[in-house]
Design a protein around this nucleic acid. Structure first.
Lengths: 147, 147
DNA sequence: TTGGGTGCAAATGTTTTGCAGCGAT
DNA sequence: ATCGCTGCAAAACATTTGCACCCAA
């Protein structure tokens, strides 16, 4: 190895911070880095993400709006996704380990992981919706015929 | 309304059948229709899917390989996804309703749905893997740096 | 000097839209 | 006639790769 990455430590810091968002899209990471004075190419962020995932430091999160997000790997948890504004937050995982085992025995699969996404409307959007219905812009259409 | 859809009933039939795959990508649907002698444009499949989802008849399934799949809406269930070959199957949902309620009370979100995907290796890939490691092609890279 | 990191541009893969024509009501 | 269904082509998006260059070890 002949050169330490300049962006990787900064990206790690973002993912480990308790700032919002909890899980970052590649574009959000690029913008956040820019605000910290570190301009960088999208493809660099991309390659760093791929490497970080391969190394087990980052974890991809897919919620169905067409963009992959990334979060720091430590500690498994579920996700809460607001279908109205796209907010994503972490919630503790309540699944019993016995469930995992039951699925393995019942299906013959070897389960490595699971992803649980609760989909709904966040408190803020609930308030906005009741006060002025349809007043805020819909989610970017993204890459899904479902939205 | 001035014209009944020719493809919609056929597509519904595919999604309701017990044939594999359990959940279909748009391209798989187009190919299956072609085999049934009904050639159609990808965009027609796409628009039909969007409409069917809006009407609540179909449900999108997102597993993180970059393609949205669709399944018939009746009856909620979880999914089992083979990270090696991309197979996707349905498994009964074991989540207690109390969990749903607990999340709502704990977060202030209004939960409309959840999606649970068990990720692992299917029995067939487990066998293939142990017999001839790395012998089969990896998943198509799709649209995700994580795979 | 070498091997990985970076930027830029181009290529992919999938989804989405524009537009013209068709056809059942 | 109308209004939704269709096909074709092009656009939009997010992701991925090719290639040249840079730079700390």
């Amino acid at each position: 190895m002949a050169r330490p990455s300049k962006i990787r430590p900064q990206l790690d810091a973002l993912l480990r911070s308790h700032r919002q968002p909890h899980a970052w899209t590649l574009e959000e990471l690029r913008e956040a880095l820019g605000r910290r004075g570190l301009r960088s190419a999208f493809s660099s962020i991309f390659r760093t993400a791929r490497q970080a995932v391969a190394q087990g430091d980052w974890q991809p999160v897919v919620v169905g709006d067409g963009k992959t997000r990334f979060e720091w790997s430590g500690g498994h948890h579920d996700h809460l996704f607001c279908q109205s504004c796209g907010a994503l937050e972490a919630v503790p995982c309540r699944l019993a380990l016995s469930l995992h085992n039951r699925i393995e025995r019942g299906t013959g699969y070897r389960i490595h992981d699971h992803s649980m996404v609760w989909e709904g409307t966040c408190p803020r959007c609930i308030r906005n919706r009741s006060r002025r219905a349809h007043d805020h812009p819909p989610l970017p259409s993204g890459a899904h015929p479902s939205r």
